[in-house]
Structures are given as C-alpha cells and as structure tokens.
C-alpha cells in the first residue's frame, strides 16, 4: 500500500523494458544457441515482471494467472529447445549458430 504509493508504475515499466532490451541484445549478439535461449528466458522474465507489477496496480489476479501460464509454456519450450540443441550437437559437435550458415534467410 504505502509501497505502491511510493513506487510509481513507470519504474516497473522501465525496468522491464531495460531487461527486455538486454535480452534482445543478447539474442542478437550471442553465437551460442544455449546463450540465445537463456536470453530469451530473460526476455520472458521481463514480461512476467511487468505483468505482476501491473497486477498489483490494477488489483487483478488474472495477470498473475497469465504469469503462471507463461512459466508453464516456457518450461515446455525449454524442453523442446534443449532436445533440438542436443540433436544438433550429436550431429555436429557444436551449437554455434554461425557454424550452420548453410541456410541463409
């Protein structure tokens, strides 16, 4: 209560924007698929932080439920992603994205 009075909502917005952009930056500059996936997780966390913060401001639990679902989805995604990485690793002994430049967008 007093807490919510003292911390304006923009602060959370800006904090999560910063974390999101750092994650995006990581996606762009890292070459290792594993680090890229970690950066994606970071971006997801930025989103969740934003949702939880505004859940408090709106006094609305549905945003927290949304966060819960995002976590579930993230877990499933990570599982699939790691299997794809390991499949690649078995084949080429590397998960460096730039090593597989055969397919060019």
């Amino acid at each position: 209560m007093t807490y919510l009075e003292t911390i304006p909502s923009e602060w959370y917005l800006i904090l999560s924007a910063i974390v999101f952009c750092i994650g995006l930056c990581g996606v762009l500059i890292r070459r290792n698929a594993m680090s890229v996936l970690m950066c994606i997780e970071m971006m997801l966390n930025a989103v969740m932080l934003l949702l939880v913060a505004f859940s408090g401001y709106y006094r609305d639990f549905s945003a927290q439920i949304a966060v819960f679902f995002i976590m579930i989805v993230a877990a499933a995604e990570v599982a699939v992603g790691l299997v794809i990485f390991s499949m690649m690793f078995k084949k080429t002994s590397s998960i460096d994205l730039d090593d597989w430049g055969h397919l060019k967008g």
Partner: peptide, 25 residues
Amino acid sequence: ASQEASLKYFLLGAVASCIFLFGMA
C-alpha cells in the same frame, strides 16, 4: 538442413513469442 531449420524456427519463434508477450504485457 532439417535440423538447422528446426533450430532456426525454434529460436526465432521463441523470440517472436517474447515480443508478442511483451506486447500483451
């Protein structure tokens, strides 16, 4: 090529999901 496509689709798709979610937030 199939594996690479899978990996590329996965990573870009995950980033797209993040962007969608950030938009939703």
